[in-house]
Write a protein that binds this DNA or RNA. Structure first.
Lengths: 249, 249
DNA sequence: ACCTGAACACCGTTCAAGT
DNA sequence: ACCTGAACACCGTTCAAGT
């Protein structure tokens, strides 16, 4: 009555044929469970049950749950870049804005991708890293074409990437905690500036207007940097001349 | 031989007296375990064992592990701000730089604080939120004194905060994954810009020079914003005049 | 009012088989 | 070569007591 093989007459589930499972099928099941609830709801027993397979069978295809997650990340990475649509031919700053706005949009709309990519940065396999690098390269080339040095281009990308992923981390953390995002205003009592913003501004720091400000502000900084670099760079190794020194020529 | 109460003659651990445990003592034990290994190593049984207490006793003081973690976050918050030393009297941009550089330093040097505060944003209790708000207010006031509007001050703080916490999230993710931070360079093959930076720049995006660039670039953006705001703001509601329009007076 | 062990429903993983 | 159940060492949490 309590055991899985209930009474002796009930079928305890047939043994599956030799080639009847595959890594691909396991991965698909894992994605389905994660999509239905969350990554926390994904367990080896639940997955085995869903596939109609003994728990241990999964370990033939994936040495550990971690290895399974790594494969999910790789596969999700491909899916992510397929969904990331950024128009061509934009000026560099509009390009960055479009790229990171879209970057954020895709992850906001798909918690699964967020859990399996953003929250697993640091667990990227070489394959996942390669996929990311290829997409980053495209953005870097646009920046270099616009006049940034390769170094500055990567710094610029990194800054926006860390900012955007930071916002996603924080937002996902709120969602997973199950607590209300909008916080009680008591925390602002006796704090004149914060209290003055009551009603106009939450402390979430990741609302749409926060994100827009953040991206625009980083772009503002990059524009100044580019102007400085171009002013200094045309004559050779002049990067410590004051900005605009060459305009006198 | 295998059971905790080994042979009948061995002491199975005495029953503790009525007032012999306290929430404070439990919290302290929880911090010790977390400091010795990591937050993942903290479990209710391990904690009970460390305290010489039945597992269930902890549940008298904390309704759940989550509630215990919430209390840890609150207490860590106080500790964090005690360790955060930012000099007084700096100009606003140097103030922000000092604040967030120090912010990052403290969390980098103390994984426990990082695990219990940064990685638990979204789980802040009203008490934790209050502590944070009070410290944020100080920074906001410095910005308002420098001429920023209250809105811009909070946006500015949020941008740097999200960026800094993003960097900490990512770095901690690398550390916890146990994988090497410096990645194989194969991912760069066939990618001219990234390949050209080989050896000079990893893809971690959170190295010290990355962070410095990110903060400086955000400050650059804020300087332009402040100049625009001051130019537009002196005459009243002129925020859509082009920057510098009032300088002609 | 406080502390307790036994028990429940879960985990991830290993082992020694089966076919 | 692939699939299996039993078993191990863990979890967080609840219950029905003890004192």
């Amino acid at each position: 009555m309590t055991s899985p093989s209930q009474s002796p007459t009930a079928t305890p589930r047939k043994r599956r044929a030799r080639g009847s499972i595959s890594a691909e099928e396991i991965l698909q099941g894992a994605f389905e469970i994660t999509a239905e609830e969350s990554l926390d709801g994904l367990s080896m027993p639940r997955l085995a049950q869903k596939l109609g397979v003994g728990v241990t069978s999964i370990y033939w295809y994936f040495r550990s749950k971690d290895e399974l997650l790594d494969s999910m990340t790789e596969q999700a990475m491909v899916r992510f870049y397929e969904e990331l649509h950024v128009p061509d031919g934009l000026p560099w700053d509009e390009h960055l804005r479009a790229f990171f706005t879209e970057f954020r949009r895709v992850f906001q709309e798909d918690d699964l991708l967020c859990d399996v990519i953003i929250r697993r940065t640091g667990n990227f396999t070489p394959i996942a890293l390669k996929a990311a690098s290829e997409r980053i390269e495209v953005v870097l080339e646009a920046l270099v074409d616009a006049g940034f040095s390769a170094e500055s281009a990567l710094y610029a990308y990194s800054c926006l990437s860390v900012y955007t992923r930071g916002a996603l981390f924080i937002e996902r953390g709120y969602a997973l905690s199950g607590r209300p995002t909008i916080r009680p205003d008591e925390a602002r009592e006796g704090l004149p500036v914060l209290d003055g913003l009551r009603g106009r501004h939450t402390l979430a720091m990741t609302d749409p207007d926060d994100f827009e400000f953040g991206v625009e502000n980083i772009l503002r900084g990059l524009r100044v940097l580019l102007a400085d670099e171009q002013a200094a760079g045309t004559g050779g190794n002049l990067s410590d001349l004051p900005a605009g020194a060459l305009r006198l020529r």
